[in-house]
């Protein structure tokens, strides 16, 4: 478990993204306990303050919640969970569009190629 830290994006944002991906792919289930700030800092090889900041932001966004002295858990709020997934998909799509636009590929051609390659890629 490690993230490849990108040097130009805030580290705490990258940590949040890591959690969002885990949630979206179901690796972290709704209501599941997550590692403590200290553990996650150690696992992801980041500064504990940064982990703290990421958890705080996630808590504010409602991605995780903490009751008393218990470990934090993933939210069980369906809307938030769906939003996370939507956000990631939208982000990927935006990036995709950006890439194909920059090399002047039409939507039809792109969609055709996506269809052609999507299943092959998955089969790999």
């Amino acid at each position: 478990m490690k993230i490849n830290v990108n040097k130009r994006d805030p580290v705490y944002v990258q940590v949040m993204r890591y959690f969002k991906e885990q949630i979206a792919t179901g690796q972290l289930a709704p209501g599941e306990e997550i590692a403590s700030r200290r553990e996650i800092a150690n696992q992801l090889k980041i500064n504990p303050n940064t982990a703290q900041r990421a958890y705080k932001e996630m808590e504010e966004l409602g991605l995780i919640f903490t009751e008393g002295n218990m470990p934090s858990r993933i939210t069980m709020d369906e809307t938030i969970l769906t939003d996370v997934r939507k956000e990631l998909v939208l982000e990927a799509v935006t990036e995709f569009i950006h890439s194909i636009q920059s090399i002047d590929v039409s939507l039809e051609e792109a969609v055709e190629l996506v269809k052609e390659n999507y299943n092959r890629k998955r089969a790999d």
Partner: peptide, 30 residues
């Protein structure tokens, strides 16, 4: 040594570190 910065060994303290080469710790410093 860089790993120290990711643990409770450093947590909550103020650290001042000098260096001329930051690649080891770029993502760790505040």
């Amino acid at each position: 040594i860089a790993e120290v910065f990711t643990t409770h060994l450093i947590e909550d303290r103020g650290v001042i570190i000098t260096t001329h080469e930051i690649s080891d710790i770029e993502h760790l410093i505040d």
